[in-house]
């Protein structure tokens, strides 16, 4: 991996500019990915928040879904936030009947699990690998992870119905996903962790 990787942001829909802004602040190259051709030019990818059903539909319609799956299989690091977490899940609950995902992380994600917008919230969450200070996590119509396979490391949880809590941050190899939106907070620690993963330092 080069010292200054180019990290693309999937730009089909959602808060693309916010991710680009954080990544630029961390000194990586950035690119907006709208097509399979664009995807060829990047070393790694962020799939932003937005509407997962819309994003999935457009990725299929514009011929990006297969290209994304191929890059993931070939080992491209990808970080997904909220809708992006759903896109990286091998299994989705509460989606639409025709909803496809890129997959890659052996997990079951429940879409809109925390409820509609009036139930959206922010709260502090401890995340493995970014230091002790809780991360101010913004959850918007957010998903949670219901189950993970043996290859998946859980990086963060919020309190849930039992002691284990709800899983809201995971990593499997070069793939990382959070239920919440670090790009909205001005705290770059989670993006920095991803950049370290991309550079092979974490």
């Amino acid at each position: 991996m080069t010292a200054r990787p180019t990290i693309g942001v999937l730009a089909l829909q959602g808060d693309v500019a916010e991710h680009v802004h954080v990544l630029e602040g961390l000194g990586t190259g950035t690119a907006k990915v709208l097509s399979a051709d664009h995807l060829d030019t990047v070393d790694a990818l962020v799939i932003p928040g937005g509407e997962s059903t819309t994003m999935s539909k457009l990725a299929v319609r514009y011929g990006l879904m297969d290209a994304l799956r191929k890059r993931v299989v070939d080992g491209m690091p990808v970080y997904g936030t909220c809708a992006g977490m759903i896109m990286l899940a091998d299994r989705v609950l509460g989606g639409t009947a025709d909803q496809e995902t890129v997959g890659g992380i052996d997990m079951t994600v429940r879409r809109n699990a925390f409820g509609r917008q009036t139930e959206s919230f922010e709260t502090g969450v401890r995340i493995d690998g970014i230091g002790q200070d809780p991360f101010d996590a913004v959850f918007i119509r957010a998903p949670w992870v219901e189950a993970v396979g043996p290859q998946v490391s859980v990086l963060g949880r919020v309190p849930g119905p039992d002691e284990a809590g709800r899983i809201v941050a995971v990593r499997q190899g070069g793939l990382m996903a959070t239920s919440f939106h670090p790009e909205l907070t001005g705290d770059a620690r989670i993006h920095r962790l991803f950049v370290d993963i991309v550079k092979g330092h974490a």
């Binding site: 089909l12 959602g14 922010e122």
Partner: peptide, 28 residues
């Protein structure tokens, strides 16, 4: 407290949560 959690420190309806929702709709 939301249905999903048993804590009471989840802040709903904050400026960041509201504007964040608006940000998610961009490009759509």
């Amino acid at each position: 407290a939301t249905n999903a959690t048993n804590t009471s420190d989840n802040a709903v309806g904050t400026q960041r949560v509201k504007r964040g929702m608006a940000e998610q709709l961009k490009n759509g």
